[in-house]
Simulated scan of single mutants.
Amino acid sequence: MKYHFIAIEGNIGAGKTTLAHLLSKKLNARLVLEEFDENPFLPKFYENPKQYAFPLELFFMAERYKQLKDMLRTKDMFQSVTVSDYLFTKCLLFAKVNLPEEEFRLYQKLFDIMHQQIIFPDIVIYLHAPVAKLQKNIRKRNRSYEQSIPDEYLFNIQETYTGYIKQHNIKTIFIDASSADFLDNEKHLKVVLDALESDLDDGQHYFTLP
């Protein structure tokens, strides 16, 4: 495996964690998963976004920063590859959608300080699915606080992600996940594994699933 640090990204309900688990097993990789359940502001945010957006995003950024810094300090000599189900820049992208301008400017200053100390992944796998598919997945996993997420919110997150990836010319395996079933369809997982073995330049590389 030519990549030592692989990050999987995508919208809420895109299937990031499922794919991260599968890839870590296939590649014998260390697995880094976002610990969103530990954020006490998450259910409150969905009930009252304006009041709880700032503490929500600060908590997420602090936890992600700590997790990735710990990962750097504890290199595993038996696992040369790390797979994460998030990109640290996710902090800034969600904050851009969730925070008013003044709070976002303050948040960005804190983000810039932390971001300098974090290693950027060698490659990003981005799972792109239409909002209807995301909503179906969200209903299926049945987290109570997610069940009333508006379509417009998911669309805004999607646009922010794709805009960032294209603007910064990040080396990205861009997967059309409209019909993705990585858990039960080996052919879908094989598309991702084959893409990771390919010689890819910087920028986006689009793959469809059989």
Rank of each mutant, 00 (worst) to 15 (best):
residue 120 F to S: 14
residue 79 Q to F: 01
residue 69 K to A: 06
residue 103 E to W: 08
residue 152 E to G: 12
residue 145 Y to N: 10
residue 116 Q to S: 14
residue 142 N to F: 04
residue 67 Q to H: 03
residue 76 D to L: 13
residue 90 K to W: 03
residue 106 L to M: 08
residue 145 Y to V: 13
residue 126 Y to V: 07
residue 116 Q to C: 11
residue 86 Y to P: 03
residue 124 V to P: 07
residue 124 V to Y: 09
residue 73 R to G: 07
residue 127 L to G: 11
residue 126 Y to P: 13
residue 74 T to S: 13
residue 84 S to V: 00
residue 95 A to Y: 03
residue 81 V to K: 04
residue 105 R to E: 12
residue 129 A to G: 06
residue 66 K to H: 05
residue 99 L to S: 04
residue 88 F to H: 08
residue 103 E to D: 12
residue 82 T to V: 10
residue 69 K to P: 00
residue 154 L to V: 05
residue 122 D to E: 13
residue 145 Y to H: 14
residue 137 N to P: 05
residue 116 Q to F: 07
residue 114 M to H: 09
residue 114 M to L: 15
residue 83 V to D: 10
residue 106 L to N: 02
residue 97 V to K: 14
residue 74 T to M: 13
residue 124 V to M: 12
residue 105 R to S: 08
residue 141 R to F: 07
residue 136 K to M: 09
residue 91 C to P: 05
residue 95 A to T: 12
residue 78 F to T: 10
residue 151 D to V: 09
residue 143 R to K: 08
residue 127 L to M: 02
residue 78 F to V: 02
residue 148 S to P: 05
residue 89 T to Q: 14
residue 118 I to A: 06
residue 117 Q to W: 09
residue 96 K to V: 04
residue 130 P to R: 09
residue 155 F to E: 15
residue 115 H to Q: 11
residue 97 V to G: 05
residue 86 Y to Q: 08
residue 121 P to K: 11
residue 140 K to W: 00
residue 73 R to V: 02
residue 126 Y to F: 15
residue 128 H to E: 13
residue 101 E to T: 13
residue 83 V to Q: 04
residue 118 I to C: 04
residue 75 K to F: 03
residue 123 I to L: 11
residue 111 F to P: 01
residue 101 E to P: 10
residue 85 D to C: 06
residue 82 T to M: 03
residue 99 L to K: 08
residue 93 L to T: 05
residue 138 I to K: 06
residue 119 I to P: 13
